[in-house]
Amino acid sequence: MNEKIKIHIDGKECWTTNGTSIIDAAKENGIFIPSLCHVDGIKPAGSCRICNVQVNGRNMTACSTPAVDGMHIESNIPELEEMRKAIIEIMFVAGNHFCPACEKSGNCELQALGYRYQMMVPRFPYEFPEKGVNADSKYIYHDRNRCIMCKRCVRGVMKDGKHVFAFNSRGGENLHIELDTELASQLTEAEALAAMDICPVGAILKKERGYYQPIGERKYDKEPIGSEIENK
Protein backbone atom coordinates (compact mmCIF):
# COMPACT_ATOMS: atom_id res chain seq x y z
CA MET A 1 0.00 0.00 0.00
CA ASN A 2 2.70 2.48 0.93
CA GLU A 3 4.45 1.89 -2.32
CA LYS A 4 6.28 4.90 -3.82
CA ILE A 5 4.93 6.11 -7.14
CA LYS A 6 6.15 8.66 -9.65
CA ILE A 7 3.87 11.25 -11.22
CA HIS A 8 4.46 14.39 -13.27
CA ILE A 9 2.86 17.70 -12.33
CA ASP A 10 3.38 20.46 -14.89
CA GLY A 11 6.32 18.46 -16.19
CA LYS A 12 7.99 18.21 -12.78
CA GLU A 13 8.87 14.73 -11.59
CA CYS A 14 7.12 14.14 -8.23
CA TRP A 15 7.23 11.22 -5.82
CA THR A 16 4.44 10.23 -3.49
CA THR A 17 2.85 7.16 -1.94
CA ASN A 18 0.14 5.19 -3.66
CA GLY A 19 -3.33 6.41 -2.73
CA THR A 20 -2.38 10.01 -1.96
CA SER A 21 -4.68 12.59 -3.52
CA ILE A 22 -3.19 14.69 -6.31
CA ILE A 23 -3.53 17.86 -4.21
CA ASP A 24 -1.61 16.33 -1.29
CA ALA A 25 1.00 14.79 -3.59
CA ALA A 26 1.54 18.23 -5.14
CA LYS A 27 1.87 19.74 -1.66
CA GLU A 28 4.50 17.14 -0.68
CA ASN A 29 6.48 18.20 -3.74
CA GLY A 30 6.24 21.95 -3.19
CA ILE A 31 3.49 22.60 -5.74
CA PHE A 32 0.44 24.59 -4.68
CA ILE A 33 -2.90 23.62 -6.19
CA PRO A 34 -5.51 26.13 -4.97
CA SER A 35 -8.63 24.82 -3.25
CA LEU A 36 -11.33 26.09 -0.92
CA CYS A 37 -13.20 22.94 0.09
CA HIS A 38 -10.20 20.73 0.86
CA VAL A 39 -8.95 20.59 4.41
CA ASP A 40 -6.39 18.26 5.93
CA GLY A 41 -7.75 15.26 7.78
CA ILE A 42 -11.28 15.45 6.38
CA LYS A 43 -12.68 13.30 3.58
CA PRO A 44 -12.57 15.31 0.34
CA ALA A 45 -15.82 16.57 -1.19
CA GLY A 46 -14.71 18.00 -4.53
CA SER A 47 -17.31 20.73 -4.17
CA CYS A 48 -15.52 23.99 -4.94
CA ARG A 49 -13.93 22.82 -8.22
CA ILE A 50 -11.03 25.26 -7.86
CA CYS A 51 -8.49 22.44 -7.59
CA ASN A 52 -9.43 21.14 -11.05
CA VAL A 53 -6.37 19.78 -12.83
CA GLN A 54 -6.05 18.07 -16.19
CA VAL A 55 -5.17 14.39 -16.26
CA ASN A 56 -4.74 13.09 -19.80
CA GLY A 57 -6.66 16.15 -21.01
CA ARG A 58 -9.60 15.54 -18.68
CA ASN A 59 -10.57 17.85 -15.82
CA MET A 60 -10.43 16.13 -12.43
CA THR A 61 -10.62 17.56 -8.91
CA ALA A 62 -7.16 17.17 -7.40
CA CYS A 63 -8.57 16.76 -3.88
CA SER A 64 -10.69 13.70 -4.62
CA THR A 65 -8.58 12.00 -7.31
CA PRO A 66 -5.84 9.68 -6.05
CA ALA A 67 -2.49 9.91 -7.76
CA VAL A 68 -1.68 6.84 -9.86
CA ASP A 69 1.80 5.78 -10.91
CA GLY A 70 2.86 7.45 -14.16
CA MET A 71 0.09 10.09 -14.15
CA HIS A 72 0.76 13.26 -16.13
CA ILE A 73 -1.01 16.19 -14.47
CA GLU A 74 -1.35 19.76 -15.70
CA SER A 75 -2.25 22.39 -13.15
CA ASN A 76 -0.58 25.70 -13.88
CA ILE A 77 -1.91 26.18 -17.40
CA PRO A 78 -3.77 29.30 -18.64
CA GLU A 79 -7.03 27.41 -19.30
CA LEU A 80 -7.26 26.14 -15.70
CA GLU A 81 -5.95 29.33 -14.10
CA GLU A 82 -8.57 31.35 -15.98
CA MET A 83 -11.31 28.93 -14.90
CA ARG A 84 -10.16 29.10 -11.26
CA LYS A 85 -10.25 32.87 -11.36
CA ALA A 86 -13.77 32.75 -12.82
CA ILE A 87 -14.95 30.43 -10.02
CA ILE A 88 -13.49 32.79 -7.41
CA GLU A 89 -15.30 35.70 -9.04
CA ILE A 90 -18.58 33.74 -9.04
CA MET A 91 -18.16 33.11 -5.31
CA PHE A 92 -17.56 36.81 -4.68
CA VAL A 93 -20.77 37.88 -6.46
CA ALA A 94 -22.94 34.99 -5.22
CA GLY A 95 -22.46 35.97 -1.57
CA ASN A 96 -22.23 39.15 0.45
CA HIS A 97 -18.48 39.44 0.70
CA PHE A 98 -18.02 42.85 2.25
CA CYS A 99 -14.32 42.44 2.97
CA PRO A 100 -13.89 45.80 4.74
CA ALA A 101 -16.60 44.85 7.27
CA CYS A 102 -15.78 41.17 7.70
CA GLU A 103 -14.05 39.83 10.79
CA LYS A 104 -12.39 37.11 8.72
CA SER A 105 -10.72 39.62 6.42
CA GLY A 106 -6.98 38.98 6.19
CA ASN A 107 -7.42 35.34 7.22
CA CYS A 108 -10.05 34.49 4.58
CA GLU A 109 -9.03 31.91 1.99
CA LEU A 110 -11.47 33.17 -0.66
CA GLN A 111 -10.08 36.68 -0.26
CA ALA A 112 -6.53 35.29 -0.33
CA LEU A 113 -7.26 33.55 -3.63
CA GLY A 114 -8.74 36.84 -4.90
CA TYR A 115 -5.38 38.43 -4.06
CA ARG A 116 -3.37 35.62 -5.58
CA TYR A 117 -5.30 35.85 -8.82
CA GLN A 118 -5.31 39.68 -8.61
CA MET A 119 -9.06 39.95 -8.97
CA MET A 120 -9.64 43.66 -9.39
CA VAL A 121 -13.39 43.25 -9.98
CA PRO A 122 -15.60 40.21 -10.62
CA ARG A 123 -16.83 40.00 -14.20
CA PHE A 124 -20.32 38.92 -13.06
CA PRO A 125 -23.13 41.08 -11.56
CA TYR A 126 -23.46 41.13 -7.77
CA GLU A 127 -26.39 39.16 -6.39
CA PHE A 128 -26.57 40.49 -2.81
CA PRO A 129 -28.41 37.43 -1.50
CA GLU A 130 -30.65 37.48 1.56
CA LYS A 131 -30.12 34.06 3.09
CA GLY A 132 -30.21 35.24 6.66
CA VAL A 133 -28.00 34.94 9.69
CA ASN A 134 -28.25 32.80 12.80
CA ALA A 135 -26.80 34.37 15.94
CA ASP A 136 -28.83 32.31 18.41
CA SER A 137 -26.18 29.91 19.63
CA LYS A 138 -23.81 30.78 22.43
CA TYR A 139 -20.49 31.24 20.67
CA ILE A 140 -21.22 31.03 16.95
CA TYR A 141 -22.46 33.64 14.55
CA HIS A 142 -23.50 31.99 11.28
CA ASP A 143 -23.88 34.30 8.26
CA ARG A 144 -25.32 32.27 5.40
CA ASN A 145 -24.82 35.16 2.97
CA ARG A 146 -21.09 34.57 3.10
CA CYS A 147 -21.28 30.80 2.73
CA ILE A 148 -19.64 29.33 -0.37
CA MET A 149 -21.12 25.85 0.26
CA CYS A 150 -17.76 24.14 0.45
CA LYS A 151 -19.18 21.73 3.05
CA ARG A 152 -16.08 21.93 5.23
CA CYS A 153 -18.26 22.65 8.29
CA VAL A 154 -20.75 19.93 7.36
CA ARG A 155 -17.92 17.41 7.21
CA GLY A 156 -15.70 18.70 9.97
CA VAL A 157 -17.71 20.23 12.82
CA MET A 158 -19.11 17.51 15.09
CA LYS A 159 -20.47 17.46 18.64
CA ASP A 160 -20.97 14.13 20.39
CA GLY A 161 -20.91 12.33 17.06
CA LYS A 162 -23.57 14.60 15.54
CA HIS A 163 -23.20 17.10 12.71
CA VAL A 164 -23.54 20.71 13.85
CA PHE A 165 -24.01 21.98 10.29
CA ALA A 166 -26.11 20.42 7.53
CA PHE A 167 -27.77 21.28 4.23
CA ASN A 168 -31.43 22.34 4.57
CA SER A 169 -32.43 20.37 1.46
CA ARG A 170 -31.06 18.44 -1.47
CA GLY A 171 -31.18 21.29 -3.97
CA GLY A 172 -33.22 24.13 -5.37
CA GLU A 173 -32.88 27.88 -5.10
CA ASN A 174 -33.15 28.04 -1.33
CA LEU A 175 -30.33 25.56 -0.77
CA HIS A 176 -28.15 26.61 2.12
CA ILE A 177 -26.30 25.26 5.12
CA GLU A 178 -28.16 25.38 8.44
CA LEU A 179 -26.72 25.50 11.90
CA ASP A 180 -28.26 23.26 14.57
CA THR A 181 -28.67 26.01 17.16
CA GLU A 182 -29.22 23.69 20.10
CA LEU A 183 -26.27 21.48 19.30
CA ALA A 184 -24.09 24.52 18.50
CA SER A 185 -24.88 25.99 21.91
CA GLN A 186 -23.24 22.95 23.49
CA LEU A 187 -19.93 23.66 21.74
CA THR A 188 -17.14 24.84 23.99
CA GLU A 189 -15.37 28.07 23.23
CA ALA A 190 -12.40 26.16 21.79
CA GLU A 191 -14.69 24.06 19.59
CA ALA A 192 -16.42 27.19 18.34
CA LEU A 193 -13.04 28.67 17.48
CA ALA A 194 -12.12 25.49 15.62
CA ALA A 195 -15.41 25.79 13.68
CA MET A 196 -14.49 29.36 12.73
CA ASP A 197 -11.09 28.18 11.53
CA ILE A 198 -12.54 25.38 9.45
CA CYS A 199 -14.63 27.88 7.46
CA PRO A 200 -12.56 29.25 4.56
CA VAL A 201 -14.64 32.45 4.53
CA GLY A 202 -16.41 34.50 7.21
CA ALA A 203 -19.64 32.50 7.32
CA ILE A 204 -18.82 30.97 10.70
CA LEU A 205 -17.54 33.47 13.23
CA LYS A 206 -16.71 33.00 16.87
CA LYS A 207 -18.57 35.62 18.87
CA GLU A 208 -16.52 38.24 20.74
CA ARG A 209 -13.47 37.50 18.63
CA GLY A 210 -13.62 40.27 16.01
CA TYR A 211 -10.53 41.97 14.61
CA TYR A 212 -8.14 40.45 17.14
CA GLN A 213 -5.15 40.75 14.82
CA PRO A 214 -4.01 44.14 13.54
CA ILE A 215 -3.88 44.76 9.79
CA GLY A 216 -0.44 43.80 8.57
CA GLU A 217 -0.13 40.79 10.90
CA ARG A 218 -2.90 38.61 9.51
CA LYS A 219 -2.29 35.40 7.63
CA TYR A 220 -2.47 36.73 4.06
CA ASP A 221 -1.37 40.34 4.55
CA LYS A 222 2.22 39.88 3.40
CA GLU A 223 2.49 36.51 1.66
CA PRO A 224 0.10 35.03 -0.90
CA ILE A 225 -1.84 31.88 -0.08
CA GLY A 226 0.17 28.85 -1.19
CA SER A 227 3.55 30.50 -0.70
CA GLU A 228 4.04 28.39 2.44
CA ILE A 229 3.97 25.33 0.15
CA GLU A 230 5.92 26.83 -2.75
CA ASN A 231 8.72 28.31 -0.64
CA LYS A 232 9.17 25.26 1.58
Binding site: F92, N96, H97, F98, C99, P100, A101, M120, V121, P122, Y126, F128, P129, E130, N145
Partner: peptide
Protein backbone atom coordinates in the same frame (compact mmCIF):
# COMPACT_ATOMS: atom_id res chain seq x y z
CA UNK B 1 -11.40 54.37 -12.61
CA UNK B 2 -13.44 52.80 -9.81
CA UNK B 3 -11.47 53.66 -6.70
CA UNK B 4 -12.08 51.43 -3.68
CA UNK B 5 -14.53 48.75 -2.58
CA UNK B 6 -17.61 51.03 -2.51
CA UNK B 7 -17.19 52.00 -6.16
CA UNK B 8 -16.41 48.40 -7.09
CA UNK B 9 -19.08 46.51 -5.14
CA UNK B 10 -21.13 49.02 -3.15
CA UNK B 11 -19.03 48.57 -0.02
CA UNK B 12 -20.37 49.36 3.42
CA UNK B 13 -23.37 51.39 2.16
CA UNK B 14 -24.44 48.24 0.28
CA UNK B 15 -24.92 46.48 3.64
CA UNK B 16 -28.43 47.91 3.36
CA UNK B 17 -29.09 46.02 0.14
CA UNK B 18 -30.92 43.24 1.95
Amino acid sequence: VSLGECAIMGGLPALRNG
